[in-house]
Amino acid sequence: MENPFISVRHLTKVFSMGDEKVYALRDVNLEIARGEIICLLGPSGSGKSTLLNALAGLEKPTKGEIIVGGIHLEQLNEAQVTLFRSLNVGFVFQSYNLIPTLNAMENVTLSLMVKGVPKKEYEAAAKRVLSLVGLGDRLYHRPNQLSGGQQQRVSIARALVGKPKILFADEPTGNLDTKTSFEVMDLIKRIARKENITVIMVTHDEEMTVYADHMLHMRDGAIERHTRKNEGTNRSAAERQEVREIIAAASQGGRDND
């Protein structure tokens, strides 16, 4: 790949467990273009979460290189990595991680307030991203007044408000029913395409790979299989129809959580 946005070269992560060394990552090599969506799959302990954390600068590699937009993450000190994440990265988690006493606007604006962004600017930014995720009419609702799908949309808005280049998602649909899972992933992909955001997602759910450009199947810390979709960044008409059919079938089987 010419001029990849993310390059991973011979990435290895070793944890010491007493006298024993455990290889969480083994000589991982990877190239990702800007705006692509990557699914990390594999059984528990396969290394997918360690790889996601290393790419986000949360885990220092034992050896190897992680180059993002020309920046060598492995060469940065803790303060520099923190600044890098602040400027470039958004996170979406399985458990939403919303503050229960704050409404949607406050949950989304908190990170901008901490950065010292003026109130007029952070309120406008929060309204924009909450409208983008379909919650323009839920700005002042607290988490307990929102469904699971709506809470995850707030967490996505919170991740997007800083205009990240990369969105890291750790099991973002793990607490959602089938219909809401597909709606949330459809939302993530639509926004990623519109904003040219690279998405790196850990999932146990093979069905979510319909949204990915790359599927990395991991085992024992290594990439066992790397599958890339032929159509590149545009989902085929057949895939779009498949998603619509899955959502429709799920709607027949249960209550709409969104």
Rank of each mutant, 00 (worst) to 15 (best):
A192V: 00
D256V: 06
Y96V: 09
T198I: 04
L83M: 11
R228W: 09
A250N: 14
E195W: 13
A125T: 09
N103L: 14
L98M: 01
E65T: 08
C39Y: 03
N103P: 12
V28D: 06
H10C: 09
E2M: 12
E106N: 10
M218P: 09
K179A: 13
R244E: 05
N107F: 06
S155T: 02
M1Y: 12
L25I: 11
R219A: 11
R244P: 04
F84C: 01
L73Y: 10
V22H: 06
N257D: 08
A124L: 15
Q145T: 12
M1P: 10
P43K: 03
R85W: 14
G42S: 08
G35D: 10
G90T: 06
T178Q: 08
I71W: 11
A79I: 13
L40Q: 00
D177K: 01
E224H: 13
T50L: 11
I246M: 05
V108Q: 06
I32G: 01
G45L: 08
E2Q: 12
P143N: 00
A124E: 15
L139A: 06
G90R: 04
D170K: 10
L87H: 15
R240K: 07
E74N: 11
E36W: 07
L98H: 00
S49T: 14
V133W: 02
F168I: 05
E59F: 09
H72T: 10
F5D: 06
A79H: 13
V202A: 02
L110D: 04
M17Y: 12
R240N: 07
P43E: 09
G149S: 08
V184D: 03
P118L: 13
K119L: 12
K63G: 13
H72E: 15
G70E: 08
M113Y: 13
P43V: 02
I66D: 04
L25P: 04
K60E: 13
N77R: 09
G90W: 01
A192P: 02
